[in-house]
Amino acid sequence: MPEGDAVWRTARRLHQGLAGRLLEGSDLRVPAHATADLAGRRTLEVVPRGKHLLHRVEGDVTVHSHLRMEGSWRVHPVARRHALGRRHTVRALLWTGTRVAVGDSLGMLDLVRTSEEHRVVGHLGPDLLDPGYDPVLALANVVSDLTRTITEACLDQRNVAGMGTIFTAEPLFLLGINPWTRVGELTEEQVGDLLTTARRLLVLSCRAGRTTITGRGDVNEDDAWVHGRVGLPCKRCGTTVRVAPIGVQPQQRVMFSCPTCQGGRAPTDDGRPQSPLGHRRERSS
């Protein structure tokens, strides 16, 4: 699922392509809104809210979408509208005289009144990429249940919005915290540092134009400390990075960590050898 930085970049791309321009047509391919027509309305802005996208147009209307696992929004020259629209996975087309925004494989798409956006995003905690981010409220939310693992608490978008597995695994590694640590085993200062670090990394990725942990321009697919690096040596200590499930269904995820740098293997790790992801990486010894 795209994380806060990817959603922020998507919102920026849509905003730059459509904001201030009059929509000449729309095609929302979901039953509830299949007859909706946004033609004649001007795009006011497109903003992210956690992992949600809010495309606000004139007349108190917001096109609300969520990318989920496979979704994307792209902006193309309007001449490509008919060709792109033939794809069976396309869920939305919004076009001006020069541009068409194509929503493909969207996990969620609906129309709401802009004045009632709280119906779809009001449950979210403070957004780490919001200029008005409230760190005090975010901290209070995360530490409200001391029995949860810190990973589950951070991934719960009701506590803090924008963190996914990347921007949870990487700050945990940088701070030497085991992902399976219970919230009650950490100090509020540690949790606050974790959220601050996650926000810093998200902002860095937004500025870089790609998901990045180090910020280095010469790093491509391995720009991470632990996320996605299962079976490879830790960049700090050389121990093999491991992955294990965390949480319960349907919210269960997998989390990457270094057993040495982060205080031991996961309780859900069976200890069997783990191979690296992808065919271009060599397995560590």
Results as ranks from 00 to 15, higher is better:
Ala153Ile: 03
His55Asn: 03
Pro259Met: 09
Met1Ile: 00
Trp73Gln: 11
Arg41Lys: 11
Ser115Ile: 11
Leu174Ser: 13
Val30Leu: 07
Glu152Ser: 07
Arg158Trp: 02
Arg216Gly: 14
Ala208Trp: 09
Arg80Asp: 15
Phe173Trp: 14
Ala19Cys: 08
Pro267Met: 13
Tyr133Glu: 05
Thr214Val: 10
Gly264Leu: 07
Ala266Cys: 14
His82Asp: 15
Gly231Asn: 12
Val142Met: 12
His33Phe: 15
His118Gln: 13
Leu204Asn: 14
Gly231Ala: 06
Leu23Lys: 07
Arg56Phe: 03
Leu109Asp: 03
Gly192Gln: 12
Arg68Ile: 03
Gly103Val: 09
Pro273Met: 15
Gln251Lys: 06
Asp223Cys: 03
Gly176Glu: 06
Arg200Thr: 05
Ser284Glu: 12
Ala32Gln: 14
Val160Gly: 02
Val121Met: 12
Cys206Trp: 01
Arg87Leu: 08
Glu152Pro: 03
Glu185Thr: 07
Gln249Pro: 10
Val191Pro: 04
Val47Glu: 05
Gln251Ser: 07
Met163Cys: 01
Gln262Thr: 09
Thr181Phe: 09
Gly164Glu: 04
Cys258Trp: 04
Leu202Pro: 03
Leu172Ser: 10
Ser285Glu: 14
His227Phe: 07
Leu202Cys: 06
Thr260Lys: 15
Thr151Gly: 02
His33Asp: 14
Ile246Ser: 01
Ala153Leu: 12
Leu23Gly: 07
Gly278Pro: 08
Asn220Ile: 06
Val47Cys: 02
Glu189Cys: 07
Leu204Glu: 11
Thr10Gly: 09
Gly271Arg: 01
Arg199Pro: 02
Gln262Met: 13
Thr211Phe: 01
Thr89Asp: 14
Gly71Ser: 13
Cys206Met: 08
Gln252Ala: 15
Gly4Met: 01
Gly215Trp: 03
Ile166Asn: 00
Arg182Ser: 07
Arg236Gly: 12
Gly264Ala: 14
Gly231Asp: 06
Val191Gln: 08
Glu24Ala: 08
Leu139Gln: 05
Val219Phe: 11
Gly162Cys: 07
Leu23Thr: 11
Asp127Ile: 01
Gly20Val: 05
Leu67Ile: 04
Val30Ala: 08
Thr212Glu: 10
Thr239Asn: 13
Ala140Lys: 15
